[in-house]
Simulated scan of single mutants.
Amino acid sequence: MPLTLPSPRTLTDTEVPALRWGVIGTGIADPFVGAIHAHTRQRAVAVTARDAAKTEAFARRHGIGTVHTSVSALVEDPEVDVVYVATPHPLHHEQALEAIAAGKHVLVEKPIAMSAQQAREITDAGRAAGVLVQEAMWTRYLPQSDVLRQVLADGLLGDVRLVRADFGFVFGFDPAHRLWNPELGGGALLDAGVYPIAFASSVLGPPDAVTAAGSLAPTGVDERADLLLPSAGANALVSTSLVARLPITASVVGSEARLDVHSPFFGPTGLTLTTGSATSEESLTWRDTTFDKLNEGLSHQAVHLAAYVAEGRVESPVHDHAEVVSIMATIDEARRQLGAAGVPGAGGSGM
């Protein structure tokens, strides 16, 4: 039989309500707001950030009518339906809780917090308040991720034996920069490692154990980490780094076939399904050609969030609260094993 891949089950913007978004932060929020304005009916209507001049410029660039001078003013704005927390991750916990307390749905940039304990507090608060809490793990909402879910559900790979994923880049050491500063949530695991760890989790679920090897920067943050994550008879091998140019690919290897996610695996790229032996392989490739630019794929997570709000959900069905906390627990434990600075204390890892 010829190789086939299932078609992605896409969700169109016309199927979901047009929500009014309040934005906290102007860094990663810039491509996100650009994407939702270009490709959806979701609209950013208010923004706040620390630098007043940059915030005003951001508002002009994206046609945002309201600039608030504080987080409190933004989350209390009756014209805002959902708050996008797009600040550095040490601020996520406090700002997400404040938005939830104001009765707002929240999309919180990854990692959702600095520890599993903080993640649990955010998700528990959202559930208690009856509002949606979603981590901005945009990969989960891409068409290729739906293809992967169908491939796994249909058993096309056979018994899954191995998952591999990596995300690493070279960033010059600067102790004052957030990537290298423990007080600013620095380190490879929190910034980049959350992607491959989340990918492994999406296939295998929470690991039965965590074994981490790597090295620390002079500031005490993890500069690189390689993790072994066994689960349900399979292993995941994930790597992350601030000092090595990793290929940024992901693979799921089964007893019958292998599925490779193209680089960078966390964005809208493509998939290749391969079967056969080393001397007689057969492969089939699917590519996502929807957008011209990678970051335009950020719009998918906003459309799904709007759908979940309309359905009255408090968590994402493809990235639920328990998994969000579990991924943070894996990061906590890996950082603890490496001896990284700023690791949460007892009760923080959740392992």
Score class of each variant (00 low, 15 high):
65 G>W: 03
67 V>C: 14
67 V>Y: 13
67 V>F: 13
68 H>A: 05
68 H>S: 06
68 H>W: 13
69 T>C: 06
69 T>S: 13
70 S>G: 12
71 V>D: 14
72 S>R: 15
74 L>S: 10
74 L>W: 08
76 E>S: 15
77 D>Q: 13
77 D>W: 12
78 P>I: 07
78 P>T: 06
78 P>A: 09
78 P>M: 08
80 V>I: 13
80 V>F: 07
80 V>P: 02
81 D>A: 04
81 D>K: 02
81 D>H: 03
82 V>L: 15
82 V>K: 02
83 V>M: 03
83 V>A: 07
84 Y>K: 11
85 V>M: 03
86 A>R: 00
86 A>V: 11
86 A>C: 10
89 H>I: 07
89 H>K: 10
89 H>R: 14
90 P>Y: 01
90 P>C: 06
90 P>K: 09
92 H>G: 05
92 H>T: 07
92 H>K: 06
93 H>G: 05
93 H>V: 03
94 E>H: 12
94 E>Y: 04
95 Q>T: 05
95 Q>S: 04
96 A>N: 04
96 A>K: 00
96 A>Q: 02
97 L>H: 03
97 L>D: 01
99 A>V: 00
100 I>F: 05
100 I>Q: 00
101 A>S: 14
101 A>V: 09
101 A>I: 08
102 A>I: 13
102 A>L: 10
102 A>F: 11
102 A>M: 13
103 G>W: 10
104 K>H: 02
104 K>L: 04
104 K>I: 03
104 K>D: 01
105 H>F: 11
105 H>D: 07
105 H>G: 01
105 H>Q: 08
105 H>C: 01
106 V>I: 08
106 V>H: 01
107 L>I: 14
107 L>F: 08
107 L>C: 04
108 V>D: 01
108 V>E: 05
108 V>M: 06
108 V>L: 12
109 E>K: 07
110 K>R: 12
110 K>L: 11
110 K>Q: 06
110 K>M: 10
111 P>A: 10
114 M>V: 11
114 M>A: 10
115 S>P: 13
115 S>Q: 03
116 A>Y: 03
116 A>T: 08
117 Q>A: 14
